[in-house]
Every structure is written in structure tokens, then in C-alpha cells.
Amino acid sequence: MGAYHLRADNASGPTQVRPRPVVVRLARWELRNDMLRSARVRREVTTADLGMSNEPRRFYVNERLTKHNRYLFRKTREAAKERNWKFVWTRRGRTYARREQGSSAIQLSCEDDIDRLTIAK
């Protein structure tokens, strides 16, 4: 499991803000892709929808990225925010960006590709 997400600004010491992430490795790519596709359709699902009795909380399903792809995704998000691009996402381990709804998407595979965000229209 991943690390606890703590908030240290409490006077009585750090308190747990969110539960730890759950990482799942599936045996087949088809099942993984189906699960991610279904999760994108149901973005507003809460723990109450799963029949859990605790306080309803939203949860997220994301694909696990390699260290390089995670770094590229973060740098792309930062560059897109500076340049007012609206969409940055990952799919099947690849990073994509789109300036606005209806424009063509750009696939980024290395840090040098981020410069294309200023050139592309």
C-alpha cells in the first residue's frame, strides 16, 4: 500500500486526511482497459454506491504510470497550465494534450515534445 496522506497543520499533530491508495495489478490487459473505461464513465461514484456503510466519499481510478511517464505527465500539466491548454490526460501509459474542445490531440513521448505545446494549434 502507499503512504498515508497526512495534514501537518493541526496543532495537536498530523492527522490523516485521506486513506492510502489501493494498487491493483490485473492479469489481463483487456480487463484493465475495460475497468479504466468504466471508471471514466462513472466519475461521480462514491463509496456509498459500493454499499459501504461509512461516510460517502468519492474515489478515483487511475492507471499506474512508470516513473518517466509520471514525470512527463507532471511537466506537461505544468506547461499546459502556463500556456492555457485545457486538457492533459494519460491513456495506456501515454500522455496527451489538447488546447481546447474539438482541436486535435498531441501525444507527448519525451520532455522535448512539451515545446510543441506552444507551436501546435
Rank of each mutant, 00 (worst) to 15 (best):
G2Y: 03
Y4C: 11
Y4Q: 12
H5V: 14
L6K: 10
D9P: 06
G13C: 04
P14A: 11
P14S: 05
P14N: 05
T15V: 14
R18S: 15
R18C: 14
R20H: 13
R20W: 09
P21I: 04
P21S: 04
R25S: 10
L26G: 00
L26Y: 02
A27C: 11
E30F: 05
L31D: 14
N33L: 01
D34H: 15
D34S: 15
R37D: 12
S38H: 07
A39G: 05
R43D: 09
E44I: 03
V45T: 10
V45E: 08
T46G: 02
A48K: 11
L50R: 07
G51E: 00
N54A: 12
N54R: 11
N54M: 08
E55V: 13
E55D: 10
P56A: 05
P56Q: 06
R58P: 01
R58N: 10
R64N: 15
L65C: 05
L65G: 04
T66M: 11
H68Q: 15
N69C: 13
Y71P: 00
Y71C: 03
L72K: 03
F73D: 03
F73W: 04
R74S: 09
K75M: 15
A79G: 04
K81Q: 11
E82L: 07
N84Q: 13
N84G: 06
F87K: 11
W89Q: 04
R91S: 13
R91D: 10
R91E: 13
R94I: 01
Y96G: 06
A97W: 01
E100Q: 10
L108G: 06
S109Q: 12
S109M: 09
C110P: 02
C110A: 14
I114V: 14
R116H: 03
A120R: 01
